Amino acid sequence: MKETELFIPVKELLLSQGFDVKGEIKDIDVLAYHKDMMIGVELKTKISLKLIYQAIDRQKVLDQVYIAVPKSAIYQSKSLYRNFTHLLKRLEVGLIVVDHETAEVIIEAVPFDRNKSRSRYKKRLENIDQEFKLRKNKQNIGGTRGKKITRYKELVIDIGSYLMKHQQASPKAIKESTGIEKAASILQKNYDGYFERVDRGIYQLTEKGKIEISSLKNQLQENK
């Protein structure tokens, strides 16, 4: 689909809402007037940073700014759609999607309510806050990819250290000694393959666990 093929569906949409519409006014693809409101629409066949720059630039002089793209450009993946639409909302830029000969407003160009947006992610904020406050080590280097010591990993190391000393133990004994409330869950889920159950309610370290727990402990000691 060409940019020019987006024009007629977008124009008809705006006309149906009572706007007077013209194309290519100065460097604005579509300009629409209704009473005292002036709206601009940028037509593009694909999403790009340049498109965002253009939309922001139009906001300097227009009441509202929209971008119009083909449906195929915005629905390539769920993550792309989610992240891109959130960005547009933050920037107060509207989104029009064109499917064949039909145009539809997906996002209105309205003021962004940051407090309302943040309230939807309270659990995520709580997890970040908890990770920061509970994590003991400060050895992780920002920008690192791959292995890093998280709060969860610290708990795994503490449980592993206890089992190194006592060979075998129950989740209850580990919890009482280390104070780790989620000891049973960590042992049972065993995401890293460090633990194994040797009897009902009794766990020990696997060979992998012995090697990697020792390595992690040394890593923490070296970086102190």
Rank of each mutant, 00 (worst) to 15 (best):
E3Q: 10
L13Q: 00
L14K: 11
Q17T: 01
Q17W: 14
D20S: 09
V21M: 11
K22S: 08
G23P: 05
K26R: 11
D29E: 08
D29I: 05
A32M: 12
H34R: 15
K35V: 09
M38W: 06
I39P: 02
V41M: 01
E42V: 06
K46V: 02
I47T: 11
I47G: 02
S48M: 07
L49H: 09
K50F: 09
K50V: 12
L51G: 08
Q54S: 10
A55T: 09
A55I: 01
A55C: 09
R58S: 02
R58D: 07
Q64D: 05
V65W: 11
V65N: 05
V69L: 10
I74P: 08
Y75F: 13
S79N: 13
L87R: 12
L88V: 03
K89R: 15
G94W: 00
I96W: 06
V98R: 03
A103R: 11
R114Y: 15
L125A: 08
E126D: 14
I128Q: 07
D129C: 03
E131K: 02
N137L: 01
N137R: 10
I141F: 11
T144S: 05
R145K: 14
T150S: 14
K153V: 10
I157N: 01
S161A: 06
L163V: 05
M164S: 01
K165T: 14
Q168Y: 00
S170C: 03
G179I: 06
I186M: 01
Q188C: 01
Q188Y: 09
K189L: 08
N190M: 00
N190G: 09
Y191V: 10
G193E: 03
F195K: 01
D199E: 15
T206W: 04
E207H: 06
G209K: 02
S214I: 05
S215K: 14
N223W: 06
N223G: 13
